[in-house]
Design a protein around this nucleic acid. Structure first.
Lengths: 189, 189
DNA sequence: AAACAAACGGACCAGACTTGTCCGTTTCCA
DNA sequence: TGGAAACGGACAAGTCTGGTCCGTTTGTTT
C-alpha cells in the first residue's frame, strides 16, 4: 500500500507551515498554531510528528540544507570577499527571518542535524579565513566572532519606537556591517 | 497623613523590579512575575498601579530620562564623533537590555512619555547631524536610519547556535558598526 | 461501484499560567 | 497602644498549551 495522495500533500503543507511558524514565533511554537497555519487539524500534525524533536529536526534540516548550498557557492567564488559577503548576507537574512530560534539550534534535532550544523560551521570558517588571507576581511576578529555578527540585522527595533521597515532595515545594517568588516576604506562615504 | 515608610520602600522595589522584568521579558510581563521579582505580594503591585499603562509609563519614563541625560552629555562634547559614539553606544546598550519592548514603545505611556520620547528623538537628530556636518559620520544615511542601527547589537544569536556571550557580543557589533559608520578609514585593520 | 482502510479534523480533557479581587494579618505612626 | 494604611497571598475565572480519541471523509483497489 503506497502513500496516499492526500497524506503526501498534507505532509508538505505541515512542513511549510512549521517553517513559517518557527520563523515568526520560535521553536516553542504550539502544534495548534502550526495546524492552523497549515490549514489542517491538530491530529494530522501529531500523527506526522509524534515527537516534537522530529518536527524541529525536519525544519532545521530544511534551513541548514539551503545554507550549506550557499556556502558551497561562496567557496566557488574567485573573489574571496564576494564569496564572504554572499554567505554573510544569507546567514544574516536567514537569522533575521528566524529570530527566536537563535541559540537553541544545537539543543534540538538529533545527530543528523548536528552533522549538518557541523558541516555548515566548517564551510563558514573556510569562507571567512579565505577572505582574511586575501587581505579583504579584517583580521582582528576570530571567525566565530564574524559569525556572531550575522545576528545583528535581526533586530531593527530601537528604544524610540521607529517603524521597523524590515526590508530596508536589513539592507541598511548589512551595508554598514560589511563596510565595517572590510580592511580597506573603499566605501561610498 | 504622610506616605508610610514601608509603602515608599515597596514602591521603589516594585519600580526597579518592573524595569528588570520588562527588560528581560518584555512589556507583556505578568504582574505576578513583577511581584515575585520585587519580593512583594501581587496585591501591592496592583494597588500601586491599578492600570497596566501606569506601570509601563513609569518604567519607560525611567529609561527615557536616563537617555535624555546622555544625549545632553553627547551634545556637550567638543568632538562631534565622540559625542555621537557615546550616545549611539548608550542607545544600543539600552536597546539590547530591553529586547522585547522594541517598537511598541509609542503605544504605551500616554502624553508625558510621548513628550519625553519626542525630546530624545530631537536631541538624537542633532547629535547625528552635527557629526555629519563635521564630516565624521557618513552622509548616505538619514538620521532615522542611523537610529535604526542601534538595534543591531541586541541580537547576537546566529542560526548556527554559537554561545551568546552578550558582553563581548555587544562590544563586537558596536566596534564594527562604528567603524562602518565613520567616513574615514581610521580603524585598526 | 462498492467496500475497506488509511487519513483526517476538531471537540475535548487536563494542566499551566494570567488577570484581578478580597480579606485576615502585619506594620507603621500619632 | 490603638487604629488605619499597607501588605501578602489564597482564590476564582479565563486563556492557552500539550495531547488524545473517535465519527467522518477520502483515496485506492478490485
Amino acid at each position: 500500500m503506497p502513500v496516499r495522495a492526500d497524506a503526501q500533500r498534507n505532509a508538505a503543507r505541515v512542513l511549510a507551515a512549521a517553517r513559517r511558524a518557527v520563523a515568526s514565533t520560535g521553536l516553542d511554537v504550539s502544534y495548534h498554531e502550526i495546524a492552523r497555519e497549515a490549514g489542517v487539524g491538530v491530529g494530522t500534525v501529531y500523527r506526522r510528528y509524534p515527537e516534537r524533536d522530529q518536527l524541529m529536526a525536519a525544519v532545521l534540516s530544511d534551513i541548514l540544507t539551503e545554507l550549506i548550498d550557499t556556502a558551497h557557492q561562496a567557496l566557488d567564488c574567485d573573489d574571496a570577499w564576494e564569496g564572504f559577503s554572499l554567505l554573510f548576507t544569507s546567514l544574516a537574512l536567514r537569522t533575521a527571518q528566524n529570530v527566536g530560534l537563535s541559540g537553541s539550534l544545537d539543543q534540538h534535532g538529533g545527530p543528523a542535524v548536528a552533522q549538518q550544523r557541523h558541516e555548515l560551521l566548517d564551510l563558514t570558517r573556510r569562507v571567512i579565513e579565505r577572505a582574511q588571507n586575501q587581505g579583504r576581511l579584517r583580521r582582528d576578529l576570530a571567525w566565530q566572532d564574524v559569525l556572531r555578527l550575522t545576528g545583528a540585522p535581526a533586530v531593527q527595533g530601537c528604544v524610540l519606537g521607529l517603524e521597523p521597515d524590515p526590508a530596508h532595515g536589513h539592507h541598511l545594517v548589512l551595508t554598514v556591517l560589511l563596510d565595517g568588516l572590510q580592511t580597506d576604506g573603499a566605501k561610498v562615504a
